[in-house]
Design a protein around this nucleic acid. Structure first.
Lengths: 210, 210
DNA sequence: TTTATATCATACCATGAGTACGATTGCGTG
DNA sequence: CACGCAATCGTACTCATGGTATGATATAAA
């Protein structure tokens, strides 16, 4: 990598870092491009040299976080290779990811809401997609290894099960957090207890059955 | 209701109707208040006589749609009072709601993303919340009636099960639609097949078990 | 006819994304 | 050292949009 490229990476990194911090502090919408420029100590013009738009900045941050998530899932399964520990470890990864980066959870779950139209090549979006695929593959491998014999009775492929669980777990975490008050009040449960119950219920659906 | 009030309702209805149509045609973000005024044939000033903000207009439309959803769920269960038909009927209601009103599905699932801070009384938001509660109650009644004996083995209350299923079903529908292409390509399934598989999996989790 | 209310048109403000452009800085090379 | 190129800067702009202000006009009741 040439010196030029390294410098460029350095600048991009600074900008992303400042943006990340501001997004966390005051939310994505409430952060203006001028804010980012000020915090990163560049002029606004320079920001637009390195990124096409605020959206692109956001997408690069999403890429960073989906990669973090991949690593979390990966090490969860490395440390808990058996069944059902691995399953719960994945769930815990997701929960802990939500707790640490609540801003990005939803975007990542649907692997980015494609903004209006994906006209340009938008290489960031492609990379995000690819990391999403890697996460799929990791989980699918686990499902495949430990559940294939139990699942001989029904017709879903490991990929389909993976996707279904992913969707259901994501839904449970989302609701648990959005409706935490309600869960505390009407069910007398902490959101953690609620989620745990949900994960157990789901597990029963793939391992249970006579 | 006085003539004055009736006129007022009439005007509010016209505005909401125009907004609804525009939201459907070009999306919520892409619709400006000026657009709404032009389409409804009022001046912008008048719009702001009847509604405090664009957000409030949006919330009234949400209220309308969550009520539609409540009626759909209700009649689904009236027409299919047994088990497991009722369960699948609820799922189908949600799917069909998504198909007809994709714009509002997500907002309604989390029963509205509370905008920044719910400072004012915001009576619309309260009403939305109440209709959400009514939907909960309807489904909870069904769960309670048909599954209570099967569930004696484990510790979840019907309300918790209702909420968990709601969250999981919502997650599955969301992902199925956002990732329809992927599901078609990598799994060779239509999104309907995928969702059906998911719903069956979930049902197994509450009815299965030896 | 007077008065209150609803509606209107128009102009305006504030914010924020993104652009234009000319000035400046600073490094590498002849 | 001097030149030139590329990065960076600052400022001032455009444009879109939510929301407000204001004073004019219409309409219906008293």
């Amino acid at each position: 990598m040439s010196k030029r490229e390294r410098l460029s990476e350095f600048n991009r990194g600074n900008i992303l870092c400042a943006a990340k911090e501001l997004f966390r502090e005051k939310g994505v919408m409430q952060t203006t491009v001028d804010d980012i420029a000020r915090a990163a100590d560049y002029s606004k013009s320079t920001i637009y040299v390195y990124f096409k738009s605020k959206d692109e900045i956001y997408n690069y941050i999403i890429l960073e976080h989906i990669t973090i998530l991949k690593n979390m899932v990966n090490s969860a399964l490395t440390e808990n290779p058996n069944y059902p520990d691995g399953y719960y470890a994945i769930c815990d990864s997701l929960v802990s990811f939500y707790d640490t980066y609540p801003l990005y959870f939803e975007s990542i779950l649907g692997e980015i809401k494609i903004p209006q139209s994906c006209d340009g090549d938008e290489s960031v979006l492609v990379k995000i997609y690819e990391v999403g695929e890697e996460i799929n593959a990791i989980i699918e491998g686990y499902i495949d290894e430990f559940l294939s014999e139990k699942l001989s009775g029904f017709s879903m492929t490991p990929l389909q099960i993976t996707f279904t669980l992913w969707a259901a777990i994501g839904g449970i975490i989302t609701i648990a957090n959005k409706k935490e008050m309600y869960i505390n009040g009407a069910m007398k449960l902490s959101k953690e207890q609620f989620m745990r119950g949900g994960f157990e219920l789901l597990l029963r659906s793939i391992s249970g059955g006579c």
